[in-house]
Amino acid sequence: MPDAEPRRPVSEAMTQPNTSAHAGLEVDEEITIAVMGATGSGKSTFINTLSGSNLQVGNGLRSCTSAVEISCSFQLFGRNITLIDTPGFDDTTISDTDILKMIAAYLSTTYENGYTLSGIIYMHRISDFRMTGVSRRNFTMFRKLCGDSSLKNVVIVTNMWGEVTPERGEARERELATDDILFKPVLEKGACMVRHDNTYASAQEIVRRLANKTPRALCIQKELVDEHKDVSETAAGAELSREMAELVAKHRAEIAQVKEEMREALRAKDEETREELAKVRGELEAHVKKIENDRERLSSEYAEEKKRADEEMKKIRMDLEAEQVARAQRQAQIEQLEVRLRDSTNNSAEEQKRLRDEITRLNNAPRGRRGGICSIM
């Protein structure tokens, strides 16, 4: 396994290139797989196990993945593979609006530049007693991001089998696979579901299922780039807006109830209860205001995020072109030195050694970025 790298934002991430979009650029073939799922479902641990990265792993209630991050690249099945770690839509440190904004900007910018994912892994804890509201919500957003056409490139991974008895785990697995509101619809459309026992061999087998898949564009990529939709108009954006509207309605009903209880406390001259209810009302109203603000800022802040990603992509492509020129120059130098070495039979051993050393130095010179989608998040 490769040496571990420090935790970092998305950088040096390479996806399968569309050669027509990269005419004139020599970009090494690379497989990129996104890893999605709820907070605490084991995404970062899975990535670290395979890649030797040290993405931060959460042991408590707070989420550690609050941005799109990538692993260090690693070799597997003769391919260069990079895994992308994405935050769940239940993150404790960042709003769902910001999560969608980050994921959408990354996916749209890479797709515009000819890159698509080879696969998506969705992590689910088999140890969960039931599919909670939070889990369902994460899976719903996952489906909206992917769409049905990319489900053949999806592997649903159940993990944490060591926390349940085999009988209980198998019963939950059957329920997930056969329930119409759980995983059954996506399995019927081409996704597969496999177990992960938290070993390197198990993780390797999961990636093997995706390594040779034909890269496919996700639904949100087609919506944003091909159909020129606003992020709020995408399936994922509309789903998020719908959820927010439901939550606002729920809180407004709660506020109305609290107001009635405050009036009763006032009539009863129960000042202590009235003050407590006033505090609850203030918290609910603040929450409603925050949700409404999140809904309003999605489009405007996505545009800013997308502009920044596009500017970084432009720099990356310039770096790629510069690296290609430098590589060609090094190769020309090497060829010239090899000719001189072949013609140096009358030269001293010291001169021949110098030529060999120079050829070795040029061959081992740093290659710069590996032609990836670097540092755009």
Rank of each mutant, 00 (worst) to 15 (best):
I33K: 03
V248R: 09
P215T: 01
R281M: 14
P166R: 04
P166C: 01
D90I: 14
P185Y: 02
P87V: 11
K290P: 01
Q221L: 05
A171H: 02
A265H: 06
G237M: 05
D98G: 03
K353C: 07
L117F: 12
I255E: 13
H124Y: 00
M1A: 10
G162P: 03
T116A: 15
L61S: 13
I70W: 11
R295N: 11
I220E: 15
R130M: 09
L298D: 06
A245R: 08
F46P: 00
L187Y: 05
L362R: 09
S95R: 01
S20A: 15
G60M: 01
E205W: 06
A4E: 08
E112C: 10
E167G: 00
R8Y: 12
I376F: 05
V258A: 01
S299G: 06
Q75D: 08
E311Y: 05
A326I: 10
N54I: 00
S11A: 10
N198W: 05
N80T: 11
I206A: 04
I181C: 07
R274N: 12
E233Q: 15
T132I: 08
F142K: 05
T273K: 14
M141T: 01
T234I: 03
D357S: 14
E311W: 08
N54M: 10
M193L: 10
R242P: 09
K353E: 15
L83N: 08
S299I: 08
A236P: 04
L240V: 09
G372F: 10
P185V: 07
N346R: 12
G282Y: 13
M313N: 03
E227W: 12
N364M: 07
S53H: 02
G282R: 11
H228W: 14
N364V: 02
D226N: 14
N48Y: 03
I84C: 09
I316K: 05
K101A: 04
